[in-house]
Amino acid sequence: MIISILMGISVAFFGFVLQTSIAGVNRKIIGRVQKRYGPKWYQEFLDIFKLLSKRSVTHGWIFDFGVIMALGGIIATAMFMPITNDLMAFPGFDNFFIFVYLIAVGMLGMAMSASGSGNPLASIGVMRALTTMLAYEIPFMIIVLTIIKLTGHSSLSEIAMFQQTAVAGLEFSGTWFMIALPVGFAVAFLSLMGMLGKKPFETYIAPAEIASGPMVEYGGKQLGMLFIMHEITVFIEVSLFVHLFLGGAENIWIFLIKYFLVYTSVNLISNVNGRFKIDQVVVFFYKWPLLFAVMQAFVAIYLGWVI
């Protein structure tokens, strides 16, 4: 039990380091896209440690407790995340619903401390974050429902293994769900952008409108801890996406490549987009993505048309 917990902590730490460096690399790529040099690759680390070294402000015990609960919840979720087929902290217990709902603990912690800070902008930011969550979560969950129904497992590593090797008995095994459920993949990609809070759906950290939403009142170490939490959340969501749609990873290198490709593509798309109004986000997700998700689910489950 202790070893697997230490293993989990190291997975979480690995996730943090991986994601922060890839985020730094991405900032460099975006810079190069805009014909400028872009920051050092470890700029994200510098930002986080600079924040941790500053002396900030607190608005009461709930303000701090919320940040601790948020970071704790997200670290806990990351500890469950399988990296490759055999490299995971708790084999057999990495159920998909644990990730969806433990992220909610992180979200609740941050929301609690943000509205505890007494700043109306923070509460508006929290409200927008929850509304967007309501919007992008439903299509994503339907597609995952189809995947779980097709594979018969709800634990990530089995789903990954299902996609890697073609097993005789199961008729859809062996092909990545990216190819098997193309429409589902597109919808899940949109939801991933919503989850990561990337540009078109960045309503809740809208620096221009509500001064970076929930983060308004955070200064030094609280903001640093929230940045760490954000990095680990991105790690969880992107690696969730990798396991569900890109067939997990036999070894660590394939995982890194797939991870990098997914994150960079999301980042590139987000950098050419403006920002939706909050009503548009909700309406957008309930129009086409939901329709395609249901259609894909219906086709895949009942008619069995899977590529």
């Binding site: 970071l71 433990l102 170490k221």
Partner: peptide
């Protein structure tokens, strides 16, 4: 348990760093 461990880690990070000013 894992959630507890996560919170403990976060708490350690919080305590080690400089105390913030009550406002």
């Amino acid at each position: 348990v894992v959630f507890g461990v996560g919170v403990v880690i976060a708490f350690i990070i919080f305590i080690v760093l400089k105390k913030s000013r009550k406002v």
